[in-house]
Amino acid sequence: MKKFTQKITLFLIANILFYHFMIYLIDGKGFLVSACNLAQRENFDFIMLGTSHTQVFYNHVVEKILPKKMKNLATGSAGVVPEKIRLLCFFESKNSTKNIIYILDPWALYSERWNENNIILQYENIEYSYTKKLISNGATKTVLFNYFRDKLTSNALVLINSYIKTKDIPTPQPKQPVQIQIEESKKIEKTLEEQRKIDEALDKQRLEILYDEGLNQKRFSKYSQDVVEIIKLAKANHAHITFIIPPTLMGKMPGHEEVIKLLEEYKQKYNISYLDLTDEMQDQQYYWDREHFNENGVNFFTEHFLSKILN
């Protein structure tokens, strides 16, 4: 038994060393970034939280319109749990801000997929303090396992690589999918009605992905508490938080009323602000698909809404 214990310990150590060696090789190539290292001891006029809908507000684009220093902490497909961890990292790195703009998509509150099981963990480098944060924020064993494993998978490397390449460049210009679609539809004499049907079908498909667990009330109650923790975190760091329900061309998202009701409740209780912009900007010129802003959209939104909120 003694020999076995010694050998198994040695074997474990060898595996840990092997793992760290592999991570060192990957990390050395700059594949990984940590939310906790995005900024340190810096002061920002405002920061942004949210999903890919917020991610398109690139620092240099927004800072050009608003003469304010900003940091965008939003990440693609990030629900409230990963955004809470990123905010926690932001403050723990001795950064400060007076304003937090959280562009909150209703779907972020209804599925584990965008929260504990979020893919953004693939981009995080291995840090035991981060692991601790994940555990204390209820990450499942699957998430933890994937957090450690995904660094070594070829899929993750491809994802991370493309993420790194695109994370600091201006808003990707649409490859004019909609225009092309319309032009093509003209070419083959598709009517607008047909185009509308295509859009509806696409929206339906997209909603099935976004709400993969439906309007799961158990999840909603759970993630509502994470919203409270984000609010408390903001308050503890002397920052005012404003939630915005963003506009899309997909109409009101499922769960919209419930989220508004929740924000109203938090407004009374925690003195936060919120804005429902669902019905604004209903024009294709602002979007590169049915929901993500293009540069026009970012400019318009920043000039007409962000500037007012922050002034």
Binding site: F11, A14, N15, F18, Y19, T142, F145, R149, L152, T153
Partner: peptide, 18 residues
């Protein structure tokens, strides 16, 4: 032996369907 065992373990972890 140990190289083979370590590769076996990590191929399960990295390429395994869980």
């Amino acid at each position: 032996r140990w190289t083979a065992y370590i590769l076996l373990i990590w191929s399960i972890i990295v390429f395994g369907e869980f």
